[in-house]
Simulated scan of single mutants.
Amino acid sequence: MMGEEAMDFAGGGMVEAILRDELAREERALGSVVPVLRHLLASEGQTLVSDAILARVRGMLADLAAQMLAVAEGRDAALRMSGAGDTAARDMLANALAGDPALLSFCHALATESQLALRLQQRSGIDPVLSPLLQELIASDMPAIAELAMNTLAAQSRFIQSQRRMELPLGELPAELFHALVAGVERQIDDAAGIARLQQTYDEGASRLGLLARLVSTMRRGAVAALALDHAGLALFSSALAALARQPRAAAVIACHEGQGARLALGLRAAGLGPEAIERQFLAVQPSARITPGIADVSPDQARLLLAAGQAG
Results as ranks from 00 to 15, higher is better:
45 G>Q: 10
46 Q>V: 10
46 Q>Y: 15
48 L>Y: 14
49 V>W: 15
50 S>D: 11
53 I>R: 14
54 L>I: 09
54 L>N: 04
55 A>Y: 13
56 R>C: 11
56 R>W: 13
58 R>Y: 14
59 G>T: 01
59 G>K: 00
62 A>W: 15
64 L>G: 03
67 Q>A: 03
68 M>V: 08
69 L>T: 02
69 L>N: 04
70 A>M: 04
73 E>Y: 11
74 G>M: 11
75 R>S: 10
75 R>A: 03
76 D>S: 06
76 D>Y: 09
76 D>Q: 04
78 A>E: 06
80 R>C: 06
81 M>W: 07
83 G>C: 11
84 A>F: 13
85 G>P: 08
87 T>H: 07
89 A>P: 07
89 A>Y: 12
92 M>K: 10
93 L>S: 01
93 L>G: 00
94 A>F: 15
95 N>K: 10
98 A>C: 10
99 G>T: 06
101 P>I: 12
102 A>R: 12
103 L>K: 05
110 L>P: 00
111 A>W: 13
111 A>P: 01
113 E>K: 14
113 E>P: 11
115 Q>S: 05
116 L>Y: 05
120 L>M: 09
120 L>E: 06
123 R>N: 07
124 S>L: 15
127 D>R: 13
129 V>D: 03
129 V>Q: 12
130 L>C: 02
132 P>H: 00
132 P>Y: 07
133 L>K: 03
134 L>H: 11
134 L>D: 05
135 Q>Y: 15
136 E>N: 08
138 I>N: 04
139 A>I: 11
140 S>W: 12
141 D>H: 11
142 M>S: 12
144 A>K: 11
146 A>Y: 09
149 A>T: 08
149 A>G: 00
150 M>W: 15
153 L>T: 03
153 L>V: 05
159 F>K: 07
160 I>S: 03
162 S>M: 00
163 Q>D: 01
164 R>P: 01
164 R>N: 08
166 M>Q: 08
168 L>P: 02
168 L>Q: 01
168 L>S: 00
169 P>Q: 00
169 P>R: 07
170 L>Q: 01
173 L>F: 09
173 L>S: 00
173 L>A: 07
174 P>W: 05
175 A>V: 06
